[in-house]
């Protein structure tokens, strides 16, 4: 078989409907007018399934994954110093190397450095709230940052977001593209947050909650939280089945 046909013999597992949130989740008000009414059409992926943009190490700066230092002015940002670490894997437990991860978050008082954020908690002059890195050959990543604060948001009631960090993950294929949010173990706001609860699967939501892991903490400096990210996996289809 020629090279092109060989590519056709690979595919990727579908997006898992039991895990991802539905598009219409009316407790999260913004979804009401922004959710397609029809289910997405299923088409077997062709060719583009295994390809995605490849990022290079020199696309990134050396402090891009250190949110303590990457916007630091005269003194370091205020807040609880933490390390977020984990692996990017696919469903087959295969580590995904060289995957771009981008994160963004509020500062320790719950305020984003974004013009759209009007919360009256103060900005921290030394904290930007963004970071990015590439996974290493074993799929590992880490960030140093400040634990974000909870913040109130307009959703028709007295709504507070649990502390969270936004994650954008590329994997190796455009079809693995994922944006999600990571929470923190023990936060009582998770169970009453309409965005977290848009995920109607207890185990799936649990997988977004990072766990304290003192083994990776830095003595007298950082404590560590572990968060693994699982992307759609490749499957190989025997050639005979794909005529």
């Amino acid at each position: 078989m020629d090279k092109k046909n060989r590519d056709l013999n690979y595919s990727i597992y579908p997006s898992d409907k039991n895990i991802h949130p539905k598009s219409f989740t009316p407790d999260y008000k913004s979804s009401i007018l922004r959710s397609p009414k029809k289910s997405p059409l299923s088409i077997k992926n062709i060719i583009s399934d295994l390809s995605g943009h490849i990022f290079e190490k020199n696309d990134l700066g050396s402090l891009d994954n250190d949110l303590i230092k990457n916007y630091c002015k005269n003194s370091e940002p205020i807040g609880e110093r933490i390390i977020i670490f984990g692996k990017v894997l696919d469903e087959n437990s295969k580590p995904i190397p060289n995957s771009l991860i981008e994160i963004w978050q509020a500062n320790s008082s719950g305020r984003y450095r974004h013009n759209g954020d009007n919360y009256n908690a103060p900005l921290d002059p030394s904290f930007g709230g963004w970071g990015r890195c590439l996974t290493d050959n074993n799929g590992n990543y880490f960030f140093k940052t400040i634990k974000p604060g909870a913040y109130p948001w307009p959703n028709g009631g007295n709504n507070w977001r649990p502390a969270h960090i936004h994650f954008s993950v590329f994997g190796l294929s455009f079809l693995q593209r994922l944006i999600t949010q990571m929470y923190f173990e023990g936060d009582p706001l998770i169970s009453i947050c309409p965005i977290a609860q848009s995920i109607n699967n207890k185990n799936a939501l649990e997988s977004l909650i990072s766990k304290l892991d003192l083994s990776k903490s830095v003595h007298m400096d950082y404590r560590a939280y572990k968060f693994d990210i699982i992307l759609r996996g490749e499957k190989s289809i025997p050639f005979e089945n794909r005529k």
């Binding site: 898992d16 949130p21 981008e102 936004h166 999600t180 949010q181 977290a196 699982i230």
Partner: peptide, 25 residues
């Protein structure tokens, strides 16, 4: 070929209103 899946996909969440600072500042 063995196609057994071992791990569960990480669920998606909304990108929210502040995605710009993380993706295209």
């Amino acid at each position: 070929m063995n196609n057994t899946k071992i791990l569960k996909q990480t669920p998606s969440q909304t990108a929210g209103p502040y995605l710009h600072i993380g993706c295209i500042p």
